[in-house]
Each structure stands twice: as structure tokens, then as C-alpha cells.
Amino acid sequence: MVLDLNVSIREKDSVPIIDLEGEIDVYTYPKLSDALKLVFEQYPVTKNIIINLSQVRYIDSTGLGVIANGANQISRLSEGNINIINATPQIRKIFDVSGLISANFNLFDNEEIALSNLNNNNS
């Protein structure tokens, strides 16, 4: 088991997607933070960012803090949203306990559903 976080960024349907693999905690969160910073630089007017948690085994309040900061930032920049996809039931529970689900923060079951919803909202 690797106590680390791997990050990659791609784009689909003009939406930047951050794919994460590993664990998000006080040690690894800077990688997610840097990825969000890069996405904001490369997509300054995007109204949506997708964060894919399908390969994330662990997240705690540190990781949620980075995601919440990202949600605040995209809201300020473009009235946009952070969209989480593929969260395991345990990770969904953590989001629920944190009370972080808000107007700028969506949870979708998978990428297809997320992109479909985002495209419908934009049309």
C-alpha cells in the first residue's frame, strides 16, 4: 500500500477533469492543491471542474479542505462548481458528515452522468 497521491489532469467535453489515485491527507494534499491551481490557470473561465475519486482509498478533513477551497474559488471566479465523481460509499459518508454538500459542490455517481448534467445545464 502506497501512502501517496498521484494526480493527472485531462479534459472531456471542454471540462477539466482531475483524476486522483491514492490517499488525500495532510501529507499528500499539496498535490491536489497544485492540480487545482494549474486547472484554474489553464481554464480561467471554466464553470465546472470534475474531480474523479474512483481510485482514492482515503480522504479526511485535510482533503475536504482543499476541495472546499477549490469550490469557493471557482464560485468567486465564474460562479462555477466543483463536481465530485465516483466517490466510494465511505467517502460519500465523509462528505455527508462534513456538511460540505452545497450549491457550489456536486456529487455524481460517474463521469458520464456528471458530464451529461453539466452539458444540460449549459444548453
Binding site: 495532510v26 485535510t62 475536504l64 479542505g65 482543499v66 472546499a68 477551497n69 458528515v97
Partner: peptide, 14 residues
């Protein structure tokens, strides 16, 4: 410092 101050909330909930 990052984390939203949720540490104690999580500990008490879990």
C-alpha cells in the same frame, strides 16, 4: 493550516 476545523467533528461522529 488546512482542514476546515473538522477534525474534532469527524472524531466525535466516527
Amino acid at each position: 493550516k488546512i482542514g476546515l476545523g473538522l477534525g474534532i467533528v469527524f472524531m466525535k461522529s466516527l
